[in-house]
């Protein structure tokens, strides 16, 4: 159990997209904490607001997206908390935080590097920029050495040659590693990995996961790990946040989530995955129905149209996220009666 005060606290975050057809509530009251050195997993089906939440933390939500309300409290090295939601997205404070304190491994690996400069040149530039912001000066040659060292750390073979490669010359696995090297180049205290292994093979995934585990152990970097792979969640994280339609359904220590899940959605998700130990050729239990369209959000508990345990009140009132056990909370009327105002 973490004893240090939280590095990041997200409180009742709301992000909306104003579209011609109506407003999408992409993130609709999300709250969670991340402690130093902790790996927090965020799991949920596509469209439930995982990426938008992360973009909001870094103030990178594209228009017509808007941070409608909530707090994003980040603790600096001196222990002072700053509300990132109040900072100017393009201001110097936010720019200094991005990359240096909080780094993102984005979901689209191709988009992360520019095709016209070598991968090495782009990381060198980031290192030099970061140094300038801290009032230091790092020569190109020094930065290049740092990059080669980082490439070696992340398991890129022939790093001296690979620094001079363009991203499109690298295989998917190598590009992923180069991106991790980029994210680590300024030794961030929080690393956000948005589905970093979804597009790669299990073998490469195992290498990337081992690498991230080592890095956490070595530098005590906190990691937010987004994935819809429950196997990855189980093997990588210590604390899990389960999201559905922009809201946290349940959160708790990884062992609780897998062995004592409190929310019907978590239980349904866990039942529906085929496993490598599973029975061959038997039907899997499924979650009935399908994910509603963002313009068609259900009233009340967002999961009620698909919930096998739904009760009459679930269609009209939205349950609050409240503690159900040690460090575990659930937003469900099976556990309490408190509704959102």
């Amino acid at each position: 159990m973490p004893t240090d005060p939280p590095l990041l606290q997200v409180k009742d975050l709301r992000v909306t997209f104003g579209m011609d057809e109506g407003t999408i509530r992409a993130v609709d009251g999300t709250s969670f904490d991340v402690h130093p050195g902790e790996v927090v997993g965020i799991v949920g089906e596509s469209g439930c607001g995982k990426s938008v939440t992360m973009k909001a933390i870094l103030q990178l939500v594209e228009r017509p997206g808007r941070l409608a309300s909530g707090e994003i409290l980040f603790r600096d090295r001196q222990g002072t908390q700053t509300d990132l939601a109040k900072l100017d997205p393009r201001g110097p404070q936010m720019r200094a935080l991005r990359g240096a304190e909080i780094a993102l491994i984005p979901q689209e690996p191709m988009a992360a590097f520019s095709p016209v400069h070598t991968v090495g040149a782009q990381i060198i530039e980031a290192i030099q920029l970061h140094a300038t912001q801290e009032g230091r000066r790092v020569s190109k040659a020094e930065a290049r050495e740092t990059v080669i060292g980082l490439f070696r750390d992340v398991g890129i073979s022939m790093p001296e040659q690979r620094v001079d490669a363009y991203s499109w010359q690298l295989s998917g696995g190598l590009r992923q590693r180069a991106m991790i090297a980029m994210a680590l180049s300024c030794k961030p205290r929080l690393l956000i990995a948005d589905e970093p292994t979804t597009a790669i093979d299990v073998t490469t995934q195992a290498q990337v996961l081992a690498l991230l585990r080592d890095l956490r152990a070595k530098y005590n970097t906190a990691i937010i790990f987004i994935t819809h792979d429950l196997g990855v969640i189980a093997q990588m994280t210590s604390y899990v946040v389960v999201m559905y339609l922009g809201r946290v359904m349940e959160q708790g220590p990884v062992d609780q989530i897998f062995h004592a899940p409190a929310h019907p959605y978590t239980r349904a998700l866990l039942r529906s995955i085929p496993t490598i130990h599973g029975e061959t050729r038997t039907p899997l239990p499924v979650i009935s129905g399908s994910l509603p369209h963002p313009f068609n959000r259900p009233t009340g508990c967002p999961f009620h149209p698909r919930c096998p345990e739904a009760m009459p009140g679930c269609a009209t009132a939205t349950p609050k996220l409240l503690p159900v056990a040690e460090r575990q909370s659930a937003a469900c009327f099976l556990h309490h009666q408190e509704a959102e105002p």
Binding site: V202, T203, Q205, A206, L209, A210, R213, D229, L230, G231, V232, I233, A234, Q235, M236, V254, D255, F258, H259, L270, I273, T275, I276, H277
Partner: peptide
């Protein structure tokens, strides 16, 4: 290499 969906099983 397949991650087991059970935190009690070590990587």
């Amino acid at each position: 290499a397949v991650p087991v969906p059970d935190p009690r099983v070590n990587p």
